[in-house]
Design a protein around this nucleic acid. Structure first.
Length: 306
DNA sequence: ATGGTTTTTACTGCGTC
DNA sequence: GACGCGGTAAAAACCAT
């Protein structure tokens, strides 16, 4: 049962991707702003739709298999209490036996080296994506990518952290909510360059269909970081659109273009930010911003002085 | 490996507050 | 003088061949 009401757009940036955290707040994924309109999405109910339980059965099934747990959430635990099925305490011999069983059970659970690898990697993945407040769909995607990478032995010679970070970076782009390499790198112990390198290697080897990053996906978040109002966002998007039309953007890094548009828009809307501020928010250098900025001004005949 | 392109690094000069 | 901005040159990184 899903009661999502009519399409709602973010008050701040106009985005339409939201996530609801465990405390019930709904945040815009683009800019992180908490929404006033409550979006009711109770998520899937794990109803039993097997042939004898279709109708009014309120029976539930377990949670779906997920890539986010190293064992996909499919293993069991042996109960902690030394009681039998009827709740009667066991004999001391039985207790000893079960203590051994439990231990063995735990050991077989995180068994092979790849299982151990997955266990720590997925822990890191959760830590990272939690810090970046990424929605579950993206986390699942990232976990899926990481599993693929392990399967094809791509982790060899690279750090687990790096591969995890790259998986997240790739997953974000696939889902159209790209983060910059800087943003991913800031939370990971691996630097931006390494993440970029491993990302390229991974996406090539796995033949991931990662769409080229679209500059206007970055604009709302850059603006949010710089505390720029909505009209600047719109202005930047307008600039971006016109710049794209005349193929000013070919071959250039999308973050640089987005950054320059934001910078230019902030001037035109009398909310100026310095090149340094924008460069920090966007994770590109001031030089790059200047270059794009100059090109855009020339090509679009924009004069910042009037 | 190599050459062409883009981004980064590092440095300089100029004007303003 | 610190800061923002514009420019340049050389190094580094990236990409296709």
């Amino acid at each position: 049962m899903t009661l999502t009401n009519e399409k709602v757009l973010c008050k701040n940036c106009g985005g339409n991707n939201f996530e609801t955290d465990s405390s019930g707040f709904t945040n815009c994924i683009e800019c992180g702003v908490v929404q006033e309109n409550t979006i009711i999405d109770e998520g899937p109910e794990w109803r039993n739709f097997s042939k004898d339980g279709v109708d009014n059965s309120n029976e539930r099934v377990g949670m779906p298999s997920t890539n986010l747990l190293h064992d996909k959430g499919l293993t069991t635990d042996i109960g902690w209490q030394n009681k039998d099925f009827a709740g009667v305490s066991m004999s001391s011999d039985m207790s000893k036996l079960f203590r051994r069983l439990r231990r063995q059970h735990q050991r077989t659970r995180v068994n092979s080296s790849t299982e151990r690898n997955l266990a720590v990697a997925l822990g890191e993945l959760q830590r990272l994506s939690a810090k970046m407040t990424l929605p579950t769909t993206v986390r699942e995607e990232a976990a899926y990518i990481y599993r693929k990478a392990v399967e094809q032995k791509l982790v060899r010679g690279r750090s687990i952290e790096g591969v995890v970070a790259s998986s997240i970076y790739a997953a974000c782009r696939i889902h159209g909510i790209p983060r910059t390499l800087d943003e991913v790198g800031k939370h990971s112990r691996t630097g931006r360059k390494e993440i970029g390198r491993t990302f390229r290697a991974i996406s090539k080897e796995l033949m991931l269909k990662v769409p080229p990053a679209d500059p206007d996906n970055y604009v709302p978040r850059f603006c949010a970081k710089l505390n720029l109002p909505i009209n600047v966002v719109h202005k930047a998007n307008e600039i971006l659109k016109r710049a794209t039309e005349i193929e000013l953007t070919a071959g250039r890094g999308p973050t640089g273009i987005a950054a320059a548009s934001v910078y230019l828009a902030s001037i035109l809307e009398k909310e100026q930010r310095t090149q340094k501020q924008v460069s920090e928010a966007a994770g590109v250098t001031e030089v790059t911003i200047r270059n794009r900025y100059k090109e855009i001004c020339e090509a679009l005949k924009i004069d910042v002085n009037g």
